[in-house]
Amino acid sequence: MTEFNENEYKREWRKENMKAVRASFKNDFVDQFKDACKILGISQADAIREAMYNTIQKADEIRKK
């Protein structure tokens, strides 16, 4: 019987269930975004997730019409 390898399990789970979203922006814009997140006390991931969620909601509203 083989031992459970937690790291391998996590790696496989991420591979099957997660996707990355990538974008490149000018340095000043990224620096402003990072600073804004710090001021708001939110992570960059949370800010991006909220923007993605809002975009999905807007698209869903259009689909329903």
Rank of each mutant, 00 (worst) to 15 (best):
A36Y: 10
E50P: 03
M52W: 09
E16H: 10
Q44L: 08
K38T: 11
K26L: 09
Q32M: 04
N17A: 08
E50L: 01
M18C: 13
D60C: 08
T55Q: 11
C37K: 00
E16Y: 05
C37Q: 01
S43G: 14
V30S: 03
N17Q: 13
T55F: 06
D35Y: 04
D35C: 06
S43N: 12
D35I: 05
E8Q: 09
E16D: 11
K65P: 00
S43R: 13
L40Q: 10
Q57E: 13
F33D: 00
C37H: 00
A23E: 01
K34Q: 06
E12G: 09
K38H: 09
A36S: 10
K65S: 03
F4S: 07
V30P: 03
E16F: 01
M1L: 01
F25R: 09
E50V: 04
A45L: 00
E6Y: 08
R11E: 07
F25K: 02
K19H: 12
K19I: 10
A51G: 08
E61M: 02
A51R: 06
N17L: 05
T55R: 06
E6C: 10
A59D: 11
I56M: 11
M1T: 14
V21C: 06
K58D: 12
E50W: 01
R14N: 09
Q57G: 00
N54K: 05
I56D: 09
I42K: 10
V30D: 04
R63T: 06
N27Y: 12
N27V: 13
I56G: 04
Q44E: 11
K26T: 02
A45G: 11
E3A: 11
E61I: 03
K65M: 08
N5T: 04
N5W: 04
D31P: 06
F33M: 03
F25P: 00
M1A: 07
E16S: 12
Q57H: 04
M52V: 15
A59S: 10
Q32P: 02
D46M: 02
K10Q: 13
A20G: 15
K19V: 14
I42V: 12
E3H: 11
A23G: 12
K26V: 11
Y9V: 12
V21S: 02
D35G: 08
F4L: 14
